[in-house]
């Protein structure tokens, strides 16, 4: 329990890469940033459980009130399961577009 990341590596490939993640004390995956590619372009996608999304929103009290919150794909359950990642990975660009942050090309 709590021994290292419980990430199912089968969900990841060259078009769907984990950038960072957050596990709780039980080793449950609560949040993950991935880089997903559509048409060869990289997009950042943040996936969170409802609970941690609410926690993070509450911690943003020191931010400018005009700052928009991050676009986040929120999962309803208590943890993000491999099936959730696989479902998102197989989604269309149109479905995910509201949650994607297009990455600037390296300069």
């Amino acid at each position: 329990m709590g021994q290292g990341p419980k990430l199912d590596q089968r969900a990841f490939d060259d078009n769907f890469k984990s950038q960072s993640f957050h596990l709780d004390e039980m080793g449950r995956l609560l949040a993950i940033d991935v880089m997903i590619y559509f048409g060869g372009r990289p997009y950042s996608l943040t996936i969170e459980t409802y609970e941690i999304n609410a926690q993070r929103a509450a911690e943003n009290e020191d931010m400018d009130p005009d700052t928009e919150p991050d676009p986040t794909f929120v999962i309803g359950g208590e943890e993000i399961l491999p099936s959730d990642l696989l479902r998102i990975k197989e989604s269309t660009f149109e479905y995910l577009a509201p949650f994607l942050v297009e990455q600037d090309l390296a300069s």
Partner: peptide, 20 residues
């Protein structure tokens, strides 16, 4: 968040989620 796949001598963390 914990940042994966950075081969530093110590675990790397990231401050995330404070605005678009």
């Amino acid at each position: 968040d914990h940042v994966s796949d950075i081969n530093a001598a110590w675990p790397v963390s990231k401050v995330a989620k404070v605005g678009a």
